[in-house]
Amino acid sequence: MVAVASYSQRFAVLMKLRLQLFEFEDQPWFPAVVRAGMMDYLRFMITHLHTYRPIAPLLAEALRRTNQQHVLELCAGAGGGTEDVLQALQAENLPKVRITLTDLYPQPAAWQHIGKQSNGAIGFEPAPVNALQVPAQLAGFRAVFSAFHHFRPALGAQLLRNAVQAQTGVGVFEGAGKHWWEILLALTVLPVAQLLITPFIRPFSVSRLLFTYLIPLIPLCTIWDGVVSILRMYTPKQLLALGRQADPEGRYHWQAGKVRHAWGPEVTYLVGWPKNQ
């Protein structure tokens, strides 16, 4: 029992750290077809597990505070969870809300599918968009789902500072609570789930089947990136520090923490908006 308690304490300390390890999907040389397959899987899982439903009240409040009906999603990947977030916001009495997907590596095929499913309430920007320097013509409350951990602290603060300079609201959300058991799931249960659900992911892709079953680069890289993503996550305290670093004059209201699903999992978040709004 003493040994178990000791290991538990060590894991708890480890989870408070942020380890800047590498993820395959961040690498410019990484094959686009494998990256797309990984993003499609994440989109499917995040959407069907309703990962970001718990943050709908927070995001809805932030939209009201900033008088916004438009969410500009940065680093959108394949748009994982966006349909679910849209439905949750509509349920929060925001029936006219719309979302625009953007990414440094646009995925128009996946985004067009999402747009059709949402009857046009979700659109996208076809050109690459750098989350650190968002073009002025792309207005809206900026949101980052499942991607803020990719940014080193200096770059994370720069992303937030760019929103502060544009005087727009911003929120970052990670679909985990940074616990050791989430790493265990990423190593065991989720790979099995990926093998089972891949044939049902839409839009259909032959390359996704090829690189899942014959040359299993998608599941292997997903396992690695999934574990590393948790280790790279920021804690709420660290997120607040980045928000204040991005806003040294204290012009923004910042709020960070975790919200829990009724069935257990957590979402870590940071939201900020100008105090004069």
Score class of each variant (00 low, 15 high):
residue 141 F to P: 05
residue 160 L to V: 08
residue 122 I to E: 03
residue 123 G to D: 14
residue 126 P to A: 10
residue 137 Q to F: 13
residue 91 A to E: 02
residue 139 A to Q: 11
residue 132 L to F: 00
residue 38 M to F: 01
residue 54 P to L: 13
residue 44 F to A: 11
residue 102 T to E: 00
residue 54 P to G: 15
residue 159 L to R: 11
residue 141 F to N: 08
residue 64 R to N: 15
residue 160 L to C: 05
residue 160 L to H: 14
residue 38 M to P: 03
residue 64 R to H: 12
residue 68 Q to G: 07
residue 108 P to H: 05
residue 129 V to E: 00
residue 145 F to R: 08
residue 37 G to W: 10
residue 107 Q to N: 08
residue 56 A to P: 14
residue 120 G to W: 07
residue 58 L to N: 04
residue 94 L to W: 01
residue 115 G to F: 02
residue 103 D to Q: 00
residue 36 A to D: 02
residue 163 A to T: 13
residue 128 P to Y: 01
residue 92 E to W: 07
residue 93 N to P: 05
residue 94 L to A: 08
residue 78 A to C: 11
residue 51 T to C: 12
residue 78 A to P: 04
residue 126 P to N: 01
residue 50 H to E: 14
residue 151 F to G: 03
residue 54 P to V: 15
residue 138 L to K: 06
residue 93 N to Y: 06
residue 100 T to I: 05
residue 63 L to K: 02
residue 138 L to P: 04
residue 56 A to I: 12
residue 147 A to Y: 07
residue 134 V to R: 03
residue 39 M to Q: 03
residue 113 H to S: 00
residue 143 A to Y: 14
residue 96 K to C: 11
residue 62 A to R: 12
residue 101 L to R: 05
residue 105 Y to H: 00
residue 153 P to R: 06
residue 142 R to L: 08
residue 133 Q to Y: 07
residue 162 N to H: 15
residue 120 G to E: 06
residue 110 A to M: 09
residue 65 R to K: 15
residue 136 A to L: 13
residue 45 M to K: 06
residue 127 A to D: 12
residue 53 R to G: 07
residue 138 L to M: 11
residue 150 H to E: 09
residue 73 E to K: 04
residue 154 A to C: 05
residue 46 I to R: 09
residue 110 A to I: 02
residue 90 Q to P: 05
residue 44 F to S: 09
residue 55 I to K: 00
residue 159 L to H: 14
residue 57 P to Y: 08
residue 130 N to M: 02
residue 150 H to T: 03
residue 104 L to F: 00
residue 115 G to P: 01
residue 146 S to P: 10
residue 73 E to A: 12
residue 99 I to H: 06
residue 56 A to Q: 05
residue 139 A to P: 01
residue 95 P to R: 09
residue 146 S to C: 13
residue 77 G to C: 06
residue 117 Q to D: 03
residue 133 Q to W: 05
residue 122 I to V: 13
residue 106 P to W: 04
residue 105 Y to K: 00
residue 44 F to C: 06
residue 126 P to C: 10
residue 78 A to H: 13
residue 129 V to S: 08
residue 98 R to F: 08
residue 85 V to K: 09
residue 146 S to V: 12
residue 139 A to H: 09
residue 41 Y to G: 04
residue 145 F to C: 01
residue 106 P to E: 07
residue 45 M to V: 15
residue 132 L to M: 08
residue 156 G to H: 10
residue 49 L to F: 15
residue 73 E to I: 11
residue 47 T to Y: 02
residue 136 A to R: 11
residue 164 V to C: 12
residue 123 G to K: 10
residue 66 T to V: 12
residue 166 A to S: 10
residue 37 G to H: 11
residue 129 V to G: 01
residue 110 A to K: 07
residue 144 V to S: 09
residue 147 A to F: 07
residue 41 Y to H: 12
residue 150 H to M: 00
residue 127 A to V: 02
residue 81 G to V: 05
residue 137 Q to D: 14
residue 95 P to E: 10
residue 56 A to M: 01
residue 54 P to D: 14
residue 55 I to G: 05
residue 79 G to Y: 07
residue 141 F to R: 01
residue 68 Q to I: 04
